[in-house]
């Protein structure tokens, strides 16, 4: 996982509420054996006019050329609802986003974001409206996200501070996923294993020879 650092990036607006994980990554793409490569299928049914995903739908927000290269997605209420599939944040991250701004997120999706280096920022409805207006009224708007300072600032002069759990913040900043976090306790795990081997030698004696 990449460490999350302060950045200034193009923000894309997708003003839709209740975007569910089936829309983020439809089920026909769940049979892949890789965790990577889901970005090409992100929002497939909205994004393309054909099943093969070759013809862009010009009506779809993210196909607007002014959002090319965007890292920040500004979107509506209850983003990421539906199934627990981790393919959803995999697709978002693979497409190129590392920040999602909304008024609220579904629980499981919110948790999954942190496992994949994505910062979900919760703002008030009024703040969301202002952000949307600024993006829609200008070309190639770039927002600045400062994880350390927990702030989002815009060229139009908006400065929004956001809440974030301290452990999650630190893990994002260091690029530590859950595994990375657990690996910090590898000494305790090793110590446990030593004790466990002494207490239950039969678990180890004939384990695969």
């Amino acid at each position: 996982m990449q460490p999350y650092s302060k950045h200034t990036s193009i923000a894309a607006a997708m003003n839709r509420a209740n975007v569910d994980t089936d829309q983020i990554i439809p089920k026909q793409f769940l049979k892949k054996v890789e965790r990577t490569g889901f970005g090409q299928h992100l929002f497939h049914d909205w994004r393309f006019t054909d099943d093969a995903g070759k013809i862009d739908n010009p009506e779809f927000e993210l196909n607007n050329p002014k959002f090319a290269g965007a890292k920040i997605l500004v979107t509506g209420d209850n983003f990421g609802c539906g199934s627990s599939r981790e393919h959803a944040p995999w697709a978002i991250e693979d497409y190129g986003f590392n920040t999602i701004v909304s008024t609220s997120f579904a629980d499981i999706f919110y948790n999954n974001c942190f496992k994949n280096g994505i910062l979900p920022i919760v703002v008030s409805p009024a703040e969301l409206d202002s952000l949307m207006a600024e993006i829609n009224g200008n070309e190639g708007v770039e927002f600045t996200v400062d994880l350390e300072g927990q702030s989002l600032t815009t060229p139009g002069g908006l400065s929004i501070s956001f809440e974030l759990d301290a452990v999650r913040k630190s893990n994002l900043a260091l690029g530590l996923d859950d595994i990375g976090q657990t690996m910090q306790h590898v000494d305790q795990i090793t110590a446990y294993e030593t004790k466990h081997k002494a207490q239950f030698p039969w678990l180890w004696a004939n384990a695969n020879g």
Partner: peptide, 9 residues
């Protein structure tokens, strides 16, 4: 997580 650490939170 389990493959890497042999543990789970």
């Amino acid at each position: 997580h389990v493959m890497a650490t042999q543990t789970l939170p």
